[in-house]
């Protein structure tokens, strides 16, 4: 079916009838209503998120070092114990900003997977800028996390361009309502954030199989750079991933969150971070609105959204998903 006369915009009532969740409604009716302001540091600061994961037995990348003072920056090589493969990220960073992935050492320089070279001075500078708060929300003084580099699961390789795809699960009242796998593109420069131009494929809640797709708010079926079909891919360790997402959501005590995973070749899904303001493009990837699912969860009694009974809801939630 080809439709050459695509409309440039649609009417609000059409979106309403389709159950599309808009930003204003997300902020007012879901984030503000379900996420307590005092709990935000649990997701905004990745060191706290990681501590919570540790305490609840949720797999996360190993932390090599947390650099909190400028004095620690010089001792950086000692702190990482001469590791040559690691990731530096700001503890309070957003949208993948300020993350450097080092894959190996080349001479005295460090090299990213894409071959970009960083001298020790470059890394010192980067660590300092992280500490000064350049990447943190609101520009506050931050700390830098140096952690284990995740080795991409081979299943993902086919659709990964210049970066690691991650899996986002959106949970409402601790129940997964939608999931997608976010795919870096050339436009997003290896980062998996949709507003930076990354693509995404929807993930079926029950089967863990990809379908649909979105890039730059448009529906896609193939990877924008490689042309590979992005549907039909099975996320490895899907049940463990969902179980970890629910466990983390329980521990965070926040009602509306997105949890981001990467799937490691050896250890399986590990939590990268949680997000209190997950984006809405996931709806385009699914070709369906979030509202009916959220309303359904809201209509359920408290007991139905606790513990293992949540698994029974997933087929109902996934509904007609391909």
């Amino acid at each position: 079916m080809t439709n050459n006369r695509r409309r440039l915009f649609v009417w609000p009532h059409e979106l309403r009838d389709a159950g599309i969740l808009g930003i204003n409604q997300r902020n007012l009716a879901f984030i503000q209503e379900n996420n307590q302001r005092t709990l935000y540091p649990r997701v905004d600061n990745k060191t706290i998120t990681k501590e919570i994961c540790h305490a609840n037995g949720i797999p996360v990348p190993d932390t090599y070092a947390v650099i909190r003072r400028y004095g620690d920056v010089r001792r950086f090589p000692k702190l990482i114990k001469d590791r040559t493969e690691f990731v530096i990220k700001p503890a309070s960073g957003a949208a993948g900003r300020g993350i450097i992935v080092i894959a190996r050492k080349k001479g005295i320089d460090y090299e990213t997977p894409s071959g970009r070279l960083f001298s020790e001075g470059d890394l010192d500078y980067h660590l300092s800028t992280i500490l000064s708060g350049l990447y943190s929300l609101g520009g506050q003084v931050d700390s830098a996390i140096v952690e284990q580099r995740i080795i991409m699961h081979p299943t993902m390789e086919r659709i990964a361009v210049g970066g690691t795809p991650d899996v986002r699960v959106i949970l409402f009242r601790n129940v997964p309502v939608m999931a997608m796998v976010r795919l870096p593109t050339i436009q997003s420069e290896g980062r998996a954030n949709l507003h930076q131009g990354a693509a995404a494929a929807a993930v079926h809640l029950v089967t863990g199989r990809t379908f649909g797709g979105v890039c730059n708010s448009r529906m896609i079926a193939r990877h924008p750079d490689t042309g590979e079909l992005i549907g039909g891919l099975e996320i490895p360790g899907w049940r463990e991933l969902l179980a970890a997402a629910m466990k983390l959501s329980d521990a965070l005590e926040m009602g509306y969150i997105g949890v981001d995973f990467v799937v490691d070749a050896k250890i399986g899904p590990v939590v990268l971070e949680a997000n209190a303001r997950p984006g809405l493009a996931i709806q385009v990837a699914h070709r369906i609105g979030l509202l009916p699912r959220l309303k359904f969860i809201e209509s359920l009694p408290r007991e139905a959204v606790q513990g293992n009974r949540r698994w029974d809801l997933l087929p109902r939630l996934a509904g007609d998903d391909a």
Binding site: V10, L15, I288
Partner: peptide, 19 residues
């Protein structure tokens, strides 16, 4: 309510057609 830009952003969801 929806933002004006969302009427553009989510247009694909109303008239799916081909990706």
């Amino acid at each position: 309510g929806y933002r004006l830009t969302e009427l553009w952003r989510f247009r694909d969801l109303i008239e799916p057609g081909e990706p």
